[in-house]
Amino acid sequence: MKYAIALGSNLGDSRTILESALNRFENIIARSSWYQTKAVTLPGSSSQPDYINGAAILETELEPLELLTKLQQLEAEFGRVRYQRWDARTLDLDILLVDDVVFQTETLEIPHPRMSDRAFVLVPLAEIAPDWKHPVLNCSIAELLQTVDASDVRKL
């Protein structure tokens, strides 16, 4: 199966963490440049350092829930602690898309439910997979990117 994965970090040596995390994957088909973006926080929460974000396309025989478990284990290895939603983190790995599949359980929803609203996801993904169709919205990643404000996403 072909997966699109989002990567992000805003704690520690983010670039080194992200590169090291990517090196743990086999069968990476494509990877984006790194981008600096403002942190998305919950209303009323304290400010956070900027994120470094990117995307990768990989092939694996793992089923979506198996890959999710692997990604969460990798996050933990790099020091991710889950306190609250949208907290600062050493490593954040999200499954965005898998082939042209729609997949939903209590723990995982593919396509990622908020990916189409997030420039920090769409900009790097459009760099490596502009023609990949969102299976629910029936738009390409490049088309989705045209619907968001990407002015705060800066290529490193």
Rank of each mutant, 00 (worst) to 15 (best):
D94C: 04
L145A: 08
T105E: 03
G12W: 01
R15W: 00
L96Y: 13
V81E: 03
K133E: 15
Y51L: 13
R114Y: 12
M115D: 09
K38S: 14
Y83N: 15
T41L: 03
P130V: 08
R80N: 03
A4F: 06
A126R: 07
Q146H: 01
V98E: 01
A126N: 13
C139F: 00
T107Q: 08
E59F: 13
I110G: 10
L7E: 03
I95F: 10
S32D: 14
S140D: 07
A88L: 00
D100S: 14
P64F: 04
V148T: 05
R114S: 10
Q84S: 11
Q104Y: 02
R24N: 15
Q146A: 10
I95Q: 07
P124G: 12
M1R: 07
S33V: 04
A150C: 11
V40I: 11
Y51I: 10
W86N: 11
A150D: 11
T37I: 15
L22P: 10
A4N: 01
F103W: 10
E19N: 14
L67N: 00
F103P: 04
K70V: 13
A126K: 08
S47Y: 02
L97S: 09
F78W: 04
Y3A: 03
P124L: 12
A126L: 11
H112A: 02
K155N: 13
L71I: 07
I29N: 02
V153C: 15
Q72S: 04
P43A: 04
S32V: 09
E77G: 00
P130W: 14
T37K: 14
S151K: 14
Q84H: 11
D13W: 02
V98R: 13
N53L: 13
P43T: 01
Y3L: 04
L67D: 04
E106S: 14
V148W: 01
K38N: 11
G12S: 07
E109S: 10
W34V: 15
S32A: 13
T90F: 01
S32N: 12
P113W: 04
R15L: 12
D100P: 01
R154E: 12
L42N: 05
K70S: 14
C139K: 13
A119D: 05
T90S: 03
A30F: 09
A88S: 08
L91K: 01
L7C: 11
Y3V: 06
N27C: 03
A129P: 05
K2W: 02
F120G: 09
S116Y: 07
T147S: 07
W132P: 09
P135D: 15
E59Y: 12
V102C: 14
L7D: 02
F103K: 06
I95K: 14
L11S: 00
T41M: 02
A55I: 05
L125G: 09
T41W: 00
P113C: 08
L108H: 09
Y83C: 02
A56M: 13
P113Y: 08
M1A: 05
